[in-house]
């Protein structure tokens, strides 16, 4: 009789060991909650949003409504989970982990653009931008564009009614090196599905070739050196909506500035092409390493 009891005791000790280990290593809480003061009633957290001036404290005084329709509302034993508690449980973050990661990926973006600032001559054309992302928010890019010019009806009106002499630059093509910074990342719902997007700023420096670039510097020496390309800079803002791991829709407003002396005048002037760009970009490699978190 004592032998079986001893055997069972040993068995109990052996089998209890994993349980003891499991109890001895509780995972640390995501955010340790401060201990309530003795006697103080535990208050629900106030749903405020810092930094935006969103004051939702009025709601905190009311009974917290269920932000989502839960089947469990009908069951008294199951606690009601509103959005705030879900967020504070660290199970659903306000903006969840980035799904679309760009670090060490290459983006190829063909776009079409049209200028929105010149009332007399609209510039439009196509561009190709290749970017390599050094980190998720920083990229270096090469941006090449070709331009065409379309006179508007106002050219005819200005010349007919006001005898205007409109000297205009005719850009042909440009190549710029650029840096892109994407400090804004967000998500949105459309048709009850999630899309992720980021907002970026782009700035660059390069060269632009206009129709005066081939003009000789010395008019008495037509075979001599020409003006050559103009130094150009660009600055713009844009949004990138990710549709898949490797495809995104881009829109951007980019201003390209350069100094040119248009034909017919001896005055040089800063030329600005403020253009609305739209395009669809491809990412290489195709797979985003953050997709698993969705």
């Amino acid at each position: 009789m004592t032998r079986p009891l001893a055997a069972v005791t040993c068995l109990l000790l052996v089998l209890s060991a994993p349980a003891a280990r499991a109890q001895a290593t509780p995972p640390p809480p995501a955010q340790p909650a401060p201990a309530p003061a003795p006697g103080a009633q535990e208050k629900p957290p106030e749903p405020t949003t810092e930094g935006l001036g969103l004051d939702l404290t009025e709601d905190a005084k009311k009974p917290a409504p269920s932000a989502v329709a839960l089947p469990s509302d009908k069951v008294k034993d199951v606690p009601v989970l509103d959005e705030q508690s879900l967020v504070e449980d660290d199970r659903v973050k306000s903006i969840q982990r980035k799904v679309f990661l760009k670090t060490h990926r290459f983006e190829l973006l063909p776009t079409i653009f049209v200028s929105v600032n010149d009332p007399y001559y609209s510039k439009w054309g196509g561009a190709l931008r290749g970017s390599f992302f050094l980190s998720d928010t920083l990229a270096v890019a090469v941006h090449a564009s070709v331009y065409d010019l379309l006179p508007t009806d106002d050219v005819r009106t200005a010349k007919a009614n006001f005898q205007s002499r409109i000297f205009y630059s005719v850009p042909k093509w440009s190549v710029l090196g650029a840096v892109e910074w994407s400090p804004i990342y967000g998500k949105a719902t459309i048709f009850n599905s999630i899309i992720h997007f980021d907002g970026f700023i782009i700035a660059g420096l390069g060269a632009l070739w206009s129709d005066t670039s081939s003009t000789p510097l010395d008019s008495k020496n037509p075979g001599g050196p020409t003006r050559g390309p103009h130094i150009a800079g660009e600055f713009g803002i844009g949004l990138r909506f990710m549709t898949t791991d490797w495809l995104s829709v881009n829109i951007a407003l980019i201003d390209t500035a350069y100094v040119d002396q248009p034909a017919g005048t001896n005055k040089g002037a800063v030329q600005n092409i403020l253009a609305l760009n739209a395009g669809i970009s491809l990412f290489f490699p195709f797979r985003s390493t953050g997709r698993e978190s969705e």
Binding site: G51, P183, I184, G186, K187, A188, T189, F197
Partner: peptide, 15 residues
Amino acid sequence: PLYGKISLLAEGFAH
């Protein structure tokens, strides 16, 4: 059709 949030430098968010 689109409602979203923007993370602002990982500190706050705008609707």
